[in-house]
Computed example of a mutant assay.
Amino acid sequence: MLNWDDHHLVLTIARSGTIAGAARRLGVNETTVARRLSAAEAGAGTTLFSRMDRKLVASAAGRAVVAAAEAMERALAKASREEEALHGTVRVTSVLAVIEHLIVPHLAQFARRHPKLVLELIGTNETSSLARREVDIAIRLQRPARGKLVARRLGRVRFRMAGRSDQEPAGYIAYERDLDDMPEIAAIRARFGATSPRARIATLSGIRVASEAGLGAAMLPDWMIEPSRGLCVIDASVSVERPLWLVVHQDVKERPAVRAACDWLAEIVTGRAGNGDKMSAV
Rank of each mutant, 00 (worst) to 15 (best):
A261M: 14
V240Y: 11
R54C: 09
T32R: 14
A281H: 10
R25A: 15
A71T: 07
R132L: 15
V258E: 04
L26S: 02
V118T: 12
Q167A: 14
Y175C: 06
G17Q: 08
P183Q: 05
A69R: 01
R158S: 07
R191Y: 11
I207K: 02
W4R: 08
V135N: 06
A20G: 09
E30C: 11
D166F: 11
L56Q: 03
V150M: 03
A34E: 10
G147L: 05
A236C: 14
I137C: 05
S239Q: 15
D181G: 08
A39K: 04
R112Q: 05
L117S: 01
T124N: 00
N275I: 12
E134V: 02
A77C: 04
V252C: 12
I234G: 14
R63E: 15
R36C: 07
T18Y: 06
M1C: 11
Q250P: 07
R146S: 15
T93S: 15
R177Q: 13
A22C: 02
S237P: 04
L204N: 00
L179F: 13
E241L: 06
M182L: 08
A42V: 13
Y175G: 07
E41R: 00
A108L: 07
G21T: 03
A186W: 10
R259V: 13
Q250I: 15
Q250E: 15
K278H: 09
R146H: 14
L26T: 05
M72E: 13
A190E: 12
D166K: 13
L107S: 01
D181Q: 11
R133P: 09
A266R: 15
A174F: 10
R164T: 03
R158H: 13
V95T: 02
A23I: 02
V118K: 07
S228A: 04
V282G: 04
I139V: 15
R51E: 11
A174K: 03
P256E: 02
V33S: 03
V66T: 04
R208S: 01
A202Q: 03
Q109A: 12
G163S: 05
A75Q: 14
D53G: 06
G27F: 10
A210Y: 00
R74F: 15
M219R: 09
G214R: 00
S16I: 00
A190H: 06
A69H: 08
T12G: 08
L154V: 06
D166E: 14
I268V: 12
L56T: 09
L121C: 07
S211F: 00
T31Y: 04
C232E: 15
A187M: 03
A261L: 07
A60S: 09
S128L: 10
G276Y: 01
K148Q: 11
G230Q: 07
T270W: 02
R113C: 01
L215G: 01
Q167M: 04
R25H: 14
